[in-house]
Simulated assay, not measured.
Amino acid sequence: MQRPLILVTNDDSIVSPGIRTLISIMKEIGDIIVVAPDSPQSAMGHAITINNTLHLDKVNLDPEIEHEYSCSGTPVDCVKMAVHEILKRKPDLCVSGINHGSNSSINVIYSGTMSAAVEAGIEGIPAIGFSHLDYSWETDFSPIKRFVKKIALEVLKNGLPEGVVLNVNFPKSEKGEIKGIKVCRQAKAMWIEEFDKRTNPQGKDYYWLTGEFVNQDKGQDTDEFALENGFVSIVPVQFDLTAHHAIQTINNWDL
Rank of each mutant, 00 (worst) to 15 (best):
L166P: 02
G163K: 12
L160Y: 12
L166A: 01
F141E: 03
Y110T: 08
P171W: 03
V168D: 00
G112Q: 02
F147K: 03
S105D: 13
G176D: 00
F141H: 04
H100Y: 01
G112Y: 01
N169L: 00
A152L: 11
K150T: 11
D134L: 03
N103V: 12
G97K: 09
E123A: 13
K150P: 00
V164W: 02
V168I: 06
N158C: 09
K175N: 14
S102V: 11
I151W: 07
S102E: 01
E177V: 14
E138H: 10
P143Y: 05
K172H: 14
S105G: 15
F130W: 05
S105T: 14
K157G: 02
K145R: 12
E154W: 04
Y135D: 07
A152G: 07
E174M: 08
L160A: 10
S136C: 06
P126E: 14
L166H: 01
N158L: 08
I151Q: 03
E154M: 10
N167Y: 02
V155L: 07
V168C: 02
S111Q: 03
S105R: 02
H132M: 12
I128L: 11
A127E: 14
G163C: 13
L156R: 04
V164T: 09
G97Q: 09
I151L: 09
D140M: 09
P161H: 11
N103H: 12
K145L: 13
F130Y: 15
I144S: 11
V148G: 08
K150N: 10
G121V: 04
E154G: 07
V148E: 09
D140K: 09
N99H: 13
L156Y: 05
V95S: 03
G121I: 05
G163W: 10
E123N: 15
A117Y: 11
F130C: 09
K149M: 09
T139I: 15
P161Y: 05
S142Y: 08
P143F: 06
E123C: 12
I125S: 05
E119S: 13
A116M: 02
N103Y: 02
S173C: 04
G129A: 15
F130R: 03
Y135G: 06
V165H: 02
K172I: 01
S105F: 01
H132L: 14
N103K: 11
K172S: 06
K172F: 15
I98A: 06
L166G: 00
E138V: 08
I98T: 11
L133W: 08
G121Q: 05
S115Q: 10
A116H: 02
T139L: 08
T113K: 05
A152S: 15
G112N: 02
I106H: 15
D134P: 02
S111D: 09
V148D: 05
I128S: 06
K145N: 11
L153Y: 04
F141R: 01
A116I: 04
V108W: 06
S131N: 05
S96Y: 13
P161W: 03
E154V: 09
T113R: 07
K175I: 04
L93S: 00
K149W: 00
K145W: 08
V95P: 00
C94W: 03
V168G: 00
K157L: 15
A117P: 03
W137Y: 09
S102I: 14
